Amino acid sequence: MGIRIIKTALAAIAAIYTAVYLGLEPPLGAGILAILGVEVTRMKGLKSAFVRFIASVLGLFFASLIFSLFGFHIWAVAIFILITFPVLSRFQLKDGIVTSSVIVFHLFNREEVTTGIIGNEILLLFAGLGWATIVNIIYMPKDEHQLQHYRNSLEQNFGIIFQEMAFTLRNPAHVWNGSEILEAYSAIEEGAQRSVRNRENRLWGQEQYWSTYFEMRRQQLESVQQMLVELAFVYQKFPQAVMIADLLDQLASDVKSDVYEGNVEERLHELSQLFQGMELPKTRDEFEVRASLLKLLRELERYLGIAKRLKKRKAKMAGLQA
């Protein structure tokens, strides 16, 4: 927020000095336009400048017609609003309504419509929105460090979650408060928002890595939550549970690796084949627990499949690990 305030101040000062140098009236109007044009990302800044400029030109056009027909009366401003604002909204230009109003009120204050006055307002737009765009493009704060922080936090939380699940499989009486689930969810939400801003700050070459990464983690967290549902029904210790626990220990380690090598997937396939060859349950309790373990295993397959599926969206996704 502090950087944006500094950028806004610089854009406003530059716009006002430019207006004074060009002899535009009122020069402070250029400063107001610059303040309105400063945005949080480069793409938003370019889009905002375009929308505000087009909306202001259309506003000038309608205002010139209305004031020429009805005169410069206060009630004529109401007619301008009733006609122009719906048109701007209809053509997806509602973000430029305030900028357009600033320009039109300048025209109203002059109480005449001439090519000189119209030209003055157009140049004010160029000065104000132009400097806002320049400042937006020159500097935007980097999000890479913060995104990496969210990634590290996520991977640490996922590792703890898998370890806790392994503890529970080995000892069904184990109690875990599940706080890492909430922390992972928060990191995903914050990271996803920052990844959007990071992408919008790139004018050349769209960066999809972080968006894909946090989308992958979002879907995987949903899969983990379903695993926990099945884990809740494992109230007795069986050999199959210990085997899955060993697999989760491996996954807790692999989730922090920079490269996914598919070791867990191979062991998971081997474990599924082994389970199919085992004797059928002999009691109802064993049947219920082993059924939950089998569902947990299937959900684990889905968890691993999510990363593979999302990797296909971008060829160079080596950083997306299991």
Rank of each mutant, 00 (worst) to 15 (best):
I3N: 09
I3D: 12
K7T: 03
K7Y: 05
A9W: 02
I13V: 15
I16V: 15
A19C: 06
V20D: 10
L22C: 05
L24P: 10
G31E: 04
L33S: 10
I35F: 00
T41P: 10
T41L: 08
K47Q: 14
R52W: 01
A55C: 08
S56M: 01
L65F: 12
L65W: 06
S68N: 08
F70T: 06
G71Q: 03
I74F: 15
L82C: 13
V87K: 05
S89G: 11
S89L: 03
R90A: 13
K94G: 00
K94P: 01
G96R: 09
T99R: 01
S101G: 09
H106Y: 08
F108C: 02
E111S: 11
G119V: 06
N120H: 05
L124A: 12
W131H: 04
T133V: 12
I137W: 00
Y139D: 00
P141Q: 02
H145C: 00
Q148V: 02
I160A: 09
L169F: 06
R170Y: 04
H174D: 03
Y185L: 12
G191M: 02
Q193C: 06
L203R: 00
Y209V: 08
S211M: 08
Y213D: 03
F214G: 00
M216E: 08
R217I: 08
L221M: 10
Q226N: 10
A232V: 00
F238V: 13
P239Y: 13
M243Y: 14
D249L: 13
Q250P: 02
S253R: 14
D254M: 12
S257G: 11
V259P: 02
N263I: 13
E265F: 11
R267P: 03
E270V: 11
S272K: 15
Q273W: 13
L274N: 10
F275H: 10
P281Q: 12
E288C: 01
R290A: 01
R302A: 15
Y303V: 02
K308A: 11
M317G: 14
